[in-house]
């Protein structure tokens, strides 16, 4: 299951971010988002636009393609 499969407003635990683009992965890690983090999909923008995510009070935006490369599991 990936982050792109999660319902908006739902939370999940990150299993792996290995497949994410290197630059994005580094930035996610900088922001404290990595394996084991609990992440919430807050909303998405139309026409395949980016997702707003939240982890530990920290909001970030990433593209849908990147979100679909983040493996997650249900809590």
């Amino acid at each position: 299951m990936t982050l792109a499969d999660i319902q908006p407003g739902k939370k999940a635990r990150i299993v792996s971010i290995e497949n994410v683009n290197k630059l994005v992965r580094r930035r996610l890690i900088d922001l404290g988002i990595m394996e084991g983090s609990i992440i919430c999909l807050k909303n998405s923008l139309p026409f395949g636009g980016p997702y707003t995510l939240e982890a530990d009070g920290q909001s970030i935006g990433i593209r849908r393609r990147e979100a679909s490369l983040i493996e997650v599991s249900n809590l």
């Binding site: 630059l23 920290q58 909001s59 970030i60 935006g61 593209r63 990147e66």
Partner: peptide, 11 residues
């Protein structure tokens, strides 16, 4: 050159 996007959304 792949385009990437990641942005911090501050309060």
């Amino acid at each position: 050159k792949e385009s990437v996007f990641v942005v911090e959304l501050p309060p």
